[in-house]
């Protein structure tokens, strides 16, 4: 701004265009535009609803202060759903990521079969939300389903999966792990990016497979691992479909994932204000967890482009 007038306008324009702030805003424009137009207002609206008794279908919403938030902390079902959701996230995310990483790693061999294998392993992710697959999954774990038949063939007792409060979440977790395809694909792309020279150098130094995996593959892949960890954690918090189609939250709310409870409150019980309060409360929980992941990532994420 304080530049001398004598600078040629062309030069000034050039400088302006190539200024970091300009470039940043130009490239980020699609997001900024979309965010302000289509995300910000809905988010703020839902924030405002959190302090009202708004329900879909009515036009008036009365200000209710912190009533919704106070109710939240006294709501048995919500407190249970919070515990269930945390359990779901803590178990399903690590399992899914480890599984996706191992499969991606095993399937990097250069062989024609690899394409076939990877397709096989990706298929489950292509059918995720379909009603048909949820039905199948339900029947696998039914009292006379395949899983119990296998257990009985081993001389074990069959399990009433969806009738047991302690076990009912497990089929849902397995279903989410089963759909590890998109994480796997992203890992595979990440593995492809690791410079071959690293491995060549390690080979010369006589490193074995395990050493190569832990000393080269994991560190080089760490930004992608961080990415998958953050994304899978958020999406596990948002998990909805499986519980909605398979268990409807039962038995005794032991599979009442938080997103399902939000849906029930917003659409089934018609308490939109309450659902919004719950969502914003959980946004804080998720935000805190994500922040912790980001803060700790400094210790284990290896960044090629940072200095």
């Amino acid at each position: 701004m304080e530049q001398k007038r004598s600078v040629r306008t062309g030069n000034r324009l050039y400088k302006f265009i190539n200024n970091e702030n300009t470039v940043g805003n130009v490239f980020a424009f699609p997001f900024i535009f979309g965010f302000i137009c289509f995300s910000l207002i809905p988010m703020l609206t839902s924030f405002r609803y959190a302090f009202t008794d708004y329900s879909l279908g009515t036009k008036t919403a009365e200000f209710a202060g912190l009533k919704n938030f106070i109710m939240l902390l006294q709501d048995e079902v919500f407190l249970k759903s919070l515990r269930v959701t945390l359990r779901y996230v803590l178990i399903s995310v690590p399992m899914k990521l480890i599984f996706a990483l191992l499969v991606a790693f095993l399937l990097t061999r250069k062989s024609k079969m690899v394409t076939l294998y990877r397709s096989l392993y990706y298929i489950p992710s292509l059918v995720g939300g379909s009603v048909a697959v949820a039905l199948v999954w339900k029947q696998l774990f039914a009292r006379k389903g395949l899983i119990n038949m296998i257990l009985q063939a081993q001389g074990l007792k069959g399990v009433n999966w969806f009738g047991d409060q302690k076990l009912a979440l497990l089929p849902l977790i397995l279903m989410s792990v089963w759909q590890f395809g998109s994480s796997m694909i992203i890992f595979a792309a990440g593995l492809k990016e690791i410079p071959a020279v690293y491995y060549e150098a390690a080979q010369i130094d006589g490193a074995n497979g395990f050493q190569r995996f832990f000393k080269i593959t994991l560190p080089c892949l760490s930004p992608i691992i961080l990415y998958n960890l953050v994304m899978q954690t958020i999406s596990a918090f948002m998990a909805f479909t499986q519980a909605f189609i398979i268990t409807e939250g039962g038995p005794n709310n032991s599979t009442m994932l938080y997103a399902l409870y939000v849906y029930n409150q917003a659409f089934k019980y018609n308490n939109m204000g309450y659902a919004c309060a719950m969502s914003w409360f959980m946004l804080l929980v998720m935000g805190a967890i994500t922040l912790i992941i980001f803060k700790t990532s400094k210790f284990w994420v290896f960044n090629e482009s940072d200095q």
């Binding site: 940043g24 980020a28 958020i234 948002m238 935000g287």
Partner: peptide, 29 residues
Amino acid sequence: YALSRIQFKGRKFWFTCMIATMMLPGQVI
């Protein structure tokens, strides 16, 4: 590209906004 390569003002802010958009359930917005 903007968020990872360009040091412009508001970079962190927009990044936070972006992550936050994923944290509200679709049902409420």
